[in-house]
């Protein structure tokens, strides 16, 4: 059980995270002052890489337990295996679905780590390239947001009522692990379950299309026009990226419809069985 003391960040980690965030405007300033041709690609590349450092620092700073590390490694391996299994179908990949599941049931921080490392590890198979940090950041931030929406925020909404009992009307629709608190009301349970999957699917489709598509298309434009920036070029790339992003988003939704329930049930079971990651006993 991670108690409050273990969750607290060390001061060194905090200072380092703040320094990294301060570095970003510095990078932009250096670029404007010293590179007159304004290399947008380099600047954005450095910023994307730097913005992942606080996540890494926080994760490393709290010295994760062996069990937690292994569960994250298992999820990364399953995600990468999923990506390689669909290597023939462009953009039709289960990666975002798996990352969102990881974020929803393990929390925002773990969601980020699973997302970023899945991108990195799978590129050992598919090939590292200038796109690696962008993919890492895009998958990571989707897992992070999924964790924020479906794990922590939900946990605060669905807090037990004052007498300690959990009535169905108090149960959060988004909180995954309290399904059993709805008691024996099968219809209510099923309704809640369907609503959760629906919310998750809407989120995942939007996140894949908007966040992942936006980030990777922007990276492509910046690479293609490395010295300059053009709105028409950006719009043209976004428009031409719509079909691919739509395929990716619908793939994510399909995989979530198939995987969300069994995967989250399995993760919740493991969490409960082994008292992992602050699962409610």
């Amino acid at each position: 059980m991670p108690g409050p003391e273990k969750r607290r960040l060390s001061n060194r980690t905090k200072v380092a995270a703040v320094l990294v965030i301060l570095c970003i405007p510095l990078v932009i300033a250096i670029n404007i002052l010293f590179f007159e041709d304004r290399s947008y690609y380099i600047t954005s590349f450095v910023i994307i890489a730097l913005s992942m450092v606080p996540f890494a620092l926080v994760f490393e700073g709290r010295k994760p337990q062996a069990r937690e590390l292994v569960v994250i490694a298992v999820l990364v391996a399953l995600t990468v295996a999923g990506r390689t299994a669909f290597f023939m179908v462009p953009q039709f990949k289960p990666v975002v679905a798996m990352v969102i599941i990881a974020g929803a049931s393990l929390g925002a921080e773990s969601g980020f780590v699973v997302g970023a490392l899945s991108a990195f590890v799978s590129n050992f198979i598919f090939g590292q390239g200038p796109w690696t940090p962008w993919q890492m950041f895009a998958f990571g931030i989707i897992g992070f947001i999924a964790g924020l929406l479906f794990y922590q925020l939900a946990a605060s909404i669905g807090a037990p009522s004052r007498d300690g009992s959990m009535r169905p009307e108090n149960a959060s629709y988004l909180k995954w692990y309290d399904i059993n608190r709805l008691g024996s009301n099968v219809r209510a349970r099923r309704r809640v379950e369907r609503l959760r999957i629906l919310v998750l699917c809407v989120f995942s489709g939007t996140a894949t299309f908007v966040l992942y598509g936006f980030l990777l298309d922007t990276a492509a434009v910046l690479m293609f026009t490395s010295g300059e920036f053009s709105w028409t070029g950006l719009v043209a790339t976004y428009v031409s990226g719509i079909p691919m992003n739509a395929v990716h988003a619908s793939a994510t939704v399909c995989f979530l419809l198939l995987l969300a329930k069994p995967m989250i049930e399995k993760l919740e079971r493991v969490k409960k069985k082994y008292g992992l990651l602050g699962a409610q006993a």
Partner: peptide, 29 residues
């Protein structure tokens, strides 16, 4: 990947351990 982990294992020990484990788990699965 082993060279990468060798170089960055000190800097981000937990994450490079995850990378190493995940890479080993894929053929195992």
């Amino acid at each position: 990947s082993d060279k990468f982990i060798y170089l960055f294992g000190r800097l981000v020990p937990a994450m490079s351990l995850i990378i190493a484990m995940a890479l080993r788990l894929i053929p195992r699965y």
